[in-house]
Simulated assay, not measured.
Amino acid sequence: MMDPHGESFLGWPAPPGQERTEAQWTAIAGQVRHAANKLGDPLPLCMPGEPQQCGRSAQQHALAWAAELKARSHHLIESYAPSAEAGTYAAGALYKERLEALRTPRA
């Protein structure tokens, strides 16, 4: 069975000013898949133009692979934190701090 690629969000509109080309989404999807592959079993070669194309867009792949990367990262924290407290901190407060830093525009 093929992994879900966001079928429930079929036509995800881009926020204003954040439109990307299919080529840009393909590059992003490939980079995110590469990162996720480093943390677990290889993800399928099913993006547009690949040997096992699944018919979903590069944008759908980028978001699906990002969700996979987030899940694999969280699993890594749960599995290898030296204590439950350290895992809770890394997956909670530290994660939120890093996310907020990414959301804050740089000068």
Results as ranks from 00 to 15, higher is better:
72 R>W: 05
72 R>D: 04
72 R>L: 06
72 R>S: 11
72 R>P: 11
72 R>N: 03
73 S>L: 08
73 S>A: 08
73 S>Q: 10
74 H>D: 12
74 H>R: 06
74 H>Q: 06
74 H>S: 01
75 H>D: 15
75 H>N: 03
75 H>S: 06
76 L>K: 09
76 L>T: 14
76 L>I: 02
77 I>D: 09
77 I>K: 02
77 I>T: 15
78 E>H: 06
78 E>C: 09
78 E>M: 14
78 E>S: 13
78 E>Q: 11
78 E>V: 13
79 S>N: 13
79 S>Y: 08
79 S>I: 06
80 Y>I: 09
80 Y>M: 13
80 Y>Q: 00
81 A>K: 03
81 A>R: 00
81 A>D: 02
81 A>L: 03
81 A>N: 04
81 A>I: 00
81 A>H: 00
81 A>W: 02
81 A>G: 10
81 A>T: 02
82 P>F: 00
82 P>T: 00
82 P>K: 01
82 P>G: 05
83 S>H: 08
83 S>P: 05
83 S>L: 06
83 S>G: 12
84 A>K: 15
84 A>R: 15
84 A>E: 10
84 A>P: 04
84 A>N: 08
85 E>N: 03
85 E>G: 03
85 E>H: 04
86 A>F: 05
86 A>M: 10
86 A>V: 02
87 G>S: 02
87 G>D: 11
87 G>H: 11
87 G>E: 09
88 T>Y: 00
88 T>A: 04
88 T>V: 01
89 Y>N: 07
89 Y>M: 13
89 Y>E: 15
89 Y>H: 07
89 Y>S: 06
89 Y>W: 09
90 A>F: 02
90 A>C: 04
90 A>H: 00
90 A>E: 06
90 A>W: 02
90 A>Y: 02
90 A>V: 02
91 A>V: 01
91 A>T: 02
91 A>R: 01
91 A>H: 01
91 A>P: 05
91 A>E: 08
92 G>S: 05
92 G>I: 01
92 G>P: 11
92 G>D: 12
92 G>M: 03
92 G>Y: 02
92 G>V: 01
92 G>E: 10
93 A>W: 04
93 A>F: 08
93 A>I: 01
93 A>E: 06
94 L>I: 03
94 L>Y: 11
94 L>S: 13
94 L>F: 13
94 L>R: 11
94 L>M: 06
94 L>H: 13
95 Y>F: 13
95 Y>T: 11
95 Y>W: 04
95 Y>K: 09
95 Y>Q: 03
95 Y>D: 05
96 K>S: 13
96 K>A: 08
96 K>M: 07
96 K>D: 03
96 K>Y: 09
96 K>I: 01
97 E>P: 03
97 E>D: 07
97 E>T: 14
97 E>N: 07
97 E>I: 03
97 E>C: 07
98 R>V: 03
98 R>Y: 12
98 R>E: 04
99 L>K: 10
99 L>F: 09
99 L>R: 14
100 E>K: 12
100 E>Q: 15
100 E>M: 13
101 A>G: 15
101 A>R: 14
101 A>T: 15
102 L>C: 08
102 L>F: 10
102 L>W: 07
102 L>M: 12
102 L>R: 12
104 T>F: 10
104 T>R: 12
104 T>L: 09
104 T>A: 11
105 P>W: 11
105 P>E: 10
105 P>M: 05
105 P>Q: 08
105 P>I: 04
106 R>K: 14
106 R>V: 13
106 R>E: 02
106 R>F: 12
